[in-house]
Design a protein around this nucleic acid. Sequence first.
DNA 1: GCGGTCAGTGAACACTCGTACTCCGAACGG
DNA 2: CCGTTCGGAGTACGAGTGTTCACTGACCGC
Lengths: 208, 208
Amino acid sequence: MSHTPTGVRRTQKLRTRQSLLDAALVLLEHQSLSSLGLREVTRAAGVTPTAFYRHFEDTAALGVALVEETLGSLHGLIAAVLAETGDSEERLDRSVRVIASHVGAQPAHFRFIAREQHGGVGPVRVAIAAQLRRFAEEVALALREEPASAGWSTEDLLMLGGLYVDHMVITASALLEAGPAGEREVVRVARRRLRLVSIGREHWLDEG
Amino acid sequence: MSHTPTGVRRTQKLRTRQSLLDAALVLLEHQSLSSLGLREVTRAAGVTPTAFYRHFEDTAALGVALVEETLGSLHGLIAAVLAETGDSEERLDRSVRVIASHVGAQPAHFRFIAREQHGGVGPVRVAIAAQLRRFAEEVALALREEPASAGWSTEDLLMLGGLYVDHMVITASALLEAGPAGEREVVRVARRRLRLVSIGREHWLDEG
DNA sequence: GCGGTCAGTGAACACTCGTACTCCGAACGG
DNA sequence: CCGTTCGGAGTACGAGTGTTCACTGACCGC
């Protein structure tokens, strides 16, 4: 009897849940999850502390939910960007631009990911790692379709995919630190780095 | 009258200071700095809470001190590794091995750095960023001496140095997550990634 | 050796925290 | 329409927090 997932009741519950997530995200802009108090969140969300338990067991569980909210909706996006046509340079530019625009649009979400990727809350770290691994696999899959990947082993494609994903995270983090003012410079360097990796990729099979 | 910095008194003070740092590092293995309590540290160090203030203003200040303890002693090390002779492949292996051995020897220190690099405590983030930038500059300086860097601009050398440093951090973090059991695999992938970057470097000036 | 310096103590302050209760009332299924 | 479900409110508890204050006693330079 899990009842219908629709109805006024369910809607209101999701509403409060979302306001908890939103409030948490605001608070997490200046602190990390492990120092985030349950009461602090409920206070900012406008509900009583006890109401929190109707939605999450822990602040850790809330963190995991935030991870899925942030990264869950991004799957397929990178693959789509890579699948578009254009020469190497164009696609590289496009990738960096997509990252920059997403980070600029929802800085708090990405700050949270960067902060908790190696943070003090185990379950959240695990959730982020799982999502990033999925990204790496998706990128590897997209790369395989390209002519430039002829002769590449699956393992090497995954290595390259992980490299791209890690750089995506680094770039996002750098953009957050630099702020809108330093965005151009960060983008410049990120593009250069990707170009270097791209060149390495082209000549990967020349040796060894 | 700042008196002589020597003497039994100064020695004892440094002793307690160090025990505070050590205690904090142990506690930070399973949590992040922003959730670390002042009382918690003093309890583990075997002193009263008030004694803490004789050494640090904040737990944030303690964090900054930990950063310098961890990274301050590493300067020159990478440059030294890069300065050793050998072909590209050998030096690449050596670099990865040095990282792995250091991480294996003092895991807590490196875990702290990885965790707080994007953590919730501003001053600590700044301190880490400053140290890593210094590393990047040192690496760039070492790279400039090599024949393979002929024709490289200072900016690109710095870009490459930053790339190496970022990968050093990523590798260290991956080693910590993997534990001793997964070390071989992490080292394998790290070596591959560095080789790819190295190949990109060789052909960097071929185009545009 | 004598007086000042100062690292560390111990008690007390005013908080905030997570969690366990009981209870209310609106939306729910039959 | 009626009994049930359940999201949320309210209260209370014990534990832990950062910081302050006056104090002690060993080391210091003179």
